[in-house]
Amino acid sequence: MRKISLLFLLIPLLVTGCTSPGGVVAEDLWVKSSEMSMQGGMTAVYGTLTNNTQQDVVLVGGDTEIAGVVEVHEMTMIGGEMKMQEIDGGLTIPAGMSIVLEPGGNHLMLMMLTDDLEAGEEISVTFDFDGAEDITVDGIVAKPAEGGDEDYHSGEMEMDN
């Protein structure tokens, strides 16, 4: 009985390639492939992050071979328009809770891409946390996706995605 329930707990971890059961667990991660995700361009990583620790954890940034700059972004209303901007101090995941990174919402922004990111490619991303160990997830697949009202103004930090 006990063995069985342990097995069930392990399956999601194996599937997402994340091996930090006491820390933050990432699920259903994907990265957007669009006409913007070309060398020098930008894209974002989405999915679910679950904080399995007893205290709040903050997503402060990340690291991946394919991007020169990685930032934690939010979407906010600025002058009547949805714009995205870096979240000051990072994104808090309360103890025992999950957050969803999704188009039109919070996301891990990848900028200054070092190569074209094409549909069906896989990348590896490290998520940096304050309050928990960083996690590295391999095999994050690039999905063709067009965000809603995309409005990129490179360099001005008004890039929707």
């Binding site: 549909a119 697949v141 999905k143």
Partner: peptide, 12 residues
Amino acid sequence: ADMLRWMRLLTD
């Protein structure tokens, strides 16, 4: 190689 990327998406 492109076909394989397409198949990766479809399989999942």
